[in-house]
Design a protein around this nucleic acid. Structure first.
Lengths: 220, 220
DNA sequence: CAGACTAACCCACCTAGGGGTGTGCCACGA
DNA sequence: TCGTGGCACACCCCTAGGTGGGTTAGTCTG
């Protein structure tokens, strides 16, 4: 395995194309330094990448299991979590698993590229959690309809069939908080029930487009 | 408007293609006597038909309103209800509205054609309700997965976003009965919650394919 | 600095939904 | 005849989900 020159190869691991495309668009101006590997096919992974960028948005299983899958696969040289969630339990879990970066979704494109380069060069980069909530960049389903990224994630998990307790566990929120978010998002999309919310979600891009983590199971 | 010779033109009014195709297949051997008009397009109705055959399966609005829409449209010479439901309130409502037939889904294809011909000739035909449950012919979503026609109808209404009270009202069943059916169908499709049932329904043909009643609103 | 806004969270209350158990009727097949 | 399955229904119990009302802490902006 030779040391390779050229832009850093990054694979974005998330099931929602709109999210992946949002990140890819952010990185696009820097394509001489970072390039997004396309994992849109149904084939297992065959080429290694420099960085597997695990986007936490609406992942259907526990982050622990999914990050472990990435760490266990030698085809990802570096594993980086890209998230708005700085819950301490989550951060320490990820570090215990050995991730090489834990990056905030509030980073600008320039900052994100710089962090990826540092990680590629061997550093471990952990974003501070400051100013993360309000300044989230990127894209998510329902953004055009006025849903915040958190509301979007919760609706995505509901549209995957999760109940409130499952949503709370996956997002590291309390059940009460989940209910509060649900109330708000129902108002925004003008529905009265979970069933109607799911149907709205199905029609508006809240079903996962892929199961990208499956490309990473089992190793080569 | 001249009296026309040739097979009777029948328009089947239901939103699920599998149901319409099931009826059409039943009538196919008799195509010299009865032919099914295709209303699969998004255009308003332009040609009249001899009989509008209103299939009650999983209609999303009250039967009263939908049958009235058909009765009020002069492009349907005769309006016939085709159903497994012989709830007295429903039968008398339909007759009060002026339907020319109320036909059982347990009729064989031969019997159905004979009834349609009698109706076309000016008679009013009301099926007896005997032996209707077990011998339903035709097709419905989820039949291949072991759902009865009633279970299928209830899942279709759930997949349209109706709550149990709404399902009960639309099917002329008690809320307790609806719950019993739900319990049974959940077991058959192996789901634990309404949300999962809706997602299963979305994937397995339980969303309406059309809004066929819209072709009949407002008249020419 | 103060105010506005947002995210995260709480509690109380009520009903919609689902599990369990059971009844009765009918039709059909072994 | 008995068993099974479908239809329709009842009652009991419990929690998942939703509504309403609120608090706290952090961030940003004028």
């Amino acid at each position: 395995m030779s040391t390779r020159r050229g832009p850093i190869q990054v694979a974005i691991v998330d099931d929602y194309d709109v999210v992946v495309i949002g990140v890819a668009n952010m990185l696009e101006p820097y394509r001489d330094r970072v390039v997004v590997a396309e994992l849109d096919t149904n084939k297992p992974l065959v080429d290694d990448v420099d960085i597997a960028l695990y986007d936490s948005f609406a992942q259907p299983e526990s982050d622990h299991d999914e990050i472990r899958t990435l760490i266990d696969n030698p085809l990802a040289r570096r594993v980086v979590v890209y998230t708005g969630n700085f819950h301490p339990e989550l951060v320490s879990m990820a570090r215990d698993l050995g991730v090489h970066g834990y990056l905030s979704k509030a980073l600008s494109g320039r900052e994100l590229v710089a962090a990826l380069e540092a990680i590629h060069a061997g550093e471990t980069v952990i974003s501070s959690s400051a100013a993360q909530a309000r300044n989230t960049v990127g894209d998510w389903p329902g953004r055009g309809e006025g849903l915040s990224d958190r509301e979007s994630e919760i609706l995505a998990l509901i549209t995957q069939g999760k109940n409130n307790a499952e949503v709370a566990a996956l997002t590291y929120l309390s059940p009460n908080t989940v209910k509060s978010y649900i109330r708000g998002l129902y108002r925004k999309i003008d529905v009265d029930s979970r069933t109607q919310a799911v149907l709205w979600g199905v029609r508006n891009g809240f079903l996962p487009d892929h199961r990208r983590i499956e490309h990473w199971r089992g190793g080569p």
